[in-house]
């Protein structure tokens, strides 16, 4: 090895000591992720532990119907005398569970279909045309149809909301796969006899993670909104389980005399969706330049 070579090696050794800051550090430094994350964790804590500290959200109390908010009943009571505070707290569970479940399941299914569509050329047209078909079905209508066919349970609501979200994930993953599969390092792996599942999992999948995390937050936010809309239309979670959507739906008739029944779940929904979206934006800003720099 010539002197020049050794010099560059040494120069590089010095350079390489300046490591990139870890992903966690970058994320904490980003203010959007920090504050959005705090708000979201707060809602998560309330959803998990809140119901243990409140009164029964479905306990009827005909004596105290339509009471306005006060020191004793913080968010007032509804037309059956149920405590709105307890119902909103319990509703957080439904919203977060639906949002999280839809995001996770649609990302897993979408990731698989997207990888296959992007890499296995003969299946591309089949998968993508099916996805185009799914995308042309209005989400709410599909949900109403599914729920009236198989009854309204948490499971059917999640499936109904999830199906129209899948094509969005598939398209994103396929687009990433189509760019990455042309990279010389993928071709080198093919030339080295690496089998297809390994090429996908080792060389292609890691490139899809960052955009998928960002997409998942948007799917999560939109799923929570759709769940509330379904609840509001009376097509979602059955009325005996309090969800933000059906609390608002039931309160609609009494809006003029007791607006608090709609106001508090509405605010909770808006804040949660806002928090998820803020985190999503923050992740997009921190993850995307990182990918650009590393590729």
């Amino acid at each position: 090895m010539s002197n020049l070579d050794q010099e560059t090696l040494m120069a590089d050794a010095v350079l390489s000591q300046k490591e990139d800051p870890s992903l966690l550090t970058v994320m904490v430094r980003n203010r959007a992720i920090f504050w959005g994350g705090i708000l979201l964790s707060l809602f998560a804590l309330i959803a998990i532990f809140g119901p243990f500290f409140t009164v029964d959200p479905v306990a009827l109390s005909p004596m105290t119907r339509l009471r306005p908010p006060s020191a004793a009943i913080w968010f007032g009571s509804d037309f059956l005398g149920r405590d709105v505070f307890a119902r909103v707290i319990y509703g957080a569970r439904i919203s977060l569970v639906v949002g999280l479940a839809v995001a996770v399941i649609s990302v897993i299914i979408g990731l698989f279909l997207g990888l296959v569509a992007g890499y296995v050329r003969p299946l591309d047209a089949v998968i993508m045309r099916t996805m185009d078909g799914l995308m042309s079905i209005p989400a709410i209508l599909l949900a109403i149809a599914l729920i009236s066919l198989s009854g309204a349970t948490l499971g059917t609501v999640i499936i109904a909301i999830m199906i129209p979200e899948i094509p969005r994930v598939v398209r994103l993953v396929r687009a990433v796969v189509l760019t990455v599969r042309e990279e010389p390092y993928v071709e080198a792996a093919i030339a080295a006899g690496t089998r297809l599942p390994m090429i996908l999992s080792r060389h292609i999948l890691p490139n899809t993670i960052a955009p998928l995390i960002v997409q998942a937050t948007y799917v999560c936010a939109s799923a929570m909104l759709t769940e509330s809309i379904l609840g509001f239309l009376g097509a979602g979670i059955p009325p005996e389980i309090p969800s933000w959507g059906n609390i608002m739906s039931e309160g609609r008739t009494y809006f003029q005399i007791s607006p608090w029944i709609i106001f508090f779940p509405g605010v909770a929904l808006a804040l949660t969706v806002l928090a998820v979206n803020i985190v999503g934006d923050g992740l997009r800003d921190t993850l995307d330049p990182r990918i650009a720099r590393k590729m």
Binding site: P184, A188, A189, A192, G193, R202, K294
Partner: peptide, 21 residues
């Protein structure tokens, strides 16, 4: 597959030829 290892290739762009991860 058995013949793939007999022929190997080095590409032009050194920045894209190795998986960065």
């Amino acid at each position: 597959r058995p013949y793939r290892k007999e022929i190997q290739i080095v590409f032009q762009d050194p920045y894209r030829s190795l998986n960065p991860r």
